[in-house]
Amino acid sequence: MNTIRQQQRAYQQDLLTDLQAMLQAREMTTVLTADQYGRPALEVMDSRCRMRRIFVHLAFLWFYWGDERDERVTCLRLPAAADRIEAAAREGWREGEQGELGIDLTKILDAHRS
């Protein structure tokens, strides 16, 4: 893994560790982990005992736990982020598979070629 990617992963890990401390102080069940690609993630249990992974999107400085608009919050205000994530977990995570934020470059290229 190159140095830049290592630094990015370390920064993501630091952000998630800080978030974990805040959520645990609120008596939320959390586990710091990594996904199958090695991306740091924080698993958070909701009110129905379902785990959802929270990731860090560095380009936008978001914590996100799905692909819907209400499933992301800025990393820049950690207490506010913890409030939002706690509220979402207490309401219960959205039904279905966890969505993934990403940019499909093929769609952008196809649109440009048209």
Rank of each mutant, 00 (worst) to 15 (best):
K107R: 13
R77H: 12
V31A: 15
A82N: 00
D67R: 14
T33G: 00
R48V: 05
L101Q: 12
A81F: 08
D67E: 09
H57W: 15
E86Q: 14
G38A: 14
I54E: 07
A21G: 06
D110N: 11
L19T: 02
L16E: 01
D35Q: 15
H57P: 02
A88R: 05
A82F: 06
E91M: 14
M28T: 05
W65C: 01
K107Y: 12
Q98L: 07
D35K: 01
A41P: 01
A21E: 08
A89G: 03
D46T: 15
R48G: 05
R94Q: 09
Q8V: 01
D67G: 09
G66S: 11
R39D: 06
Q8S: 11
Q98D: 05
M1I: 15
L16K: 13
Q36H: 03
V44E: 00
Q98K: 04
M28P: 08
E27W: 12
F60R: 11
D110M: 14
R50I: 11
T3I: 11
D67P: 02
T74Q: 10
M45D: 07
V73P: 02
L58W: 08
Y11K: 05
E71Y: 06
R94K: 15
V73F: 05
Q24M: 04
H57I: 11
I85Y: 03
Y37C: 07
L109I: 13
N2S: 09
Q6M: 15
L101Y: 07
Q8W: 09
R90T: 03
M28I: 00
M28A: 13
A59L: 06
Q8P: 01
E68Q: 13
R90K: 13
F55Y: 04
D110W: 07
R94M: 07
R26I: 07
L32T: 09
L61K: 13
R52T: 01
A41D: 02
Q13M: 04
Y64E: 03
W93P: 10
L109M: 08
A81E: 02
L19K: 03
W93H: 14
R77F: 01
E86S: 05
A111N: 08
H57Q: 14
D104Q: 13
R9Q: 01
A87Y: 04
I4R: 05
L61P: 03
T3C: 15
G96N: 14
R53G: 04
A89C: 08
D18I: 07
Q36C: 01
A111G: 11
A21M: 12
D67H: 05
Q20I: 00
Q12C: 07
L109A: 09
R48D: 08
E100L: 10
W65Y: 04
P79R: 12
Q8C: 11
A82K: 10
L15H: 09
A34D: 03
R26Y: 01
T17H: 03
T106E: 09
A111S: 15
L109G: 12
D70L: 07
L16W: 01
D110V: 14
Y64F: 11
Q6V: 10
D35P: 00
D110E: 11
C75V: 08
M1A: 13
E27R: 06
R69M: 06
E71D: 07
A41N: 07
A25M: 09
E91F: 07
E91R: 08
L42E: 00
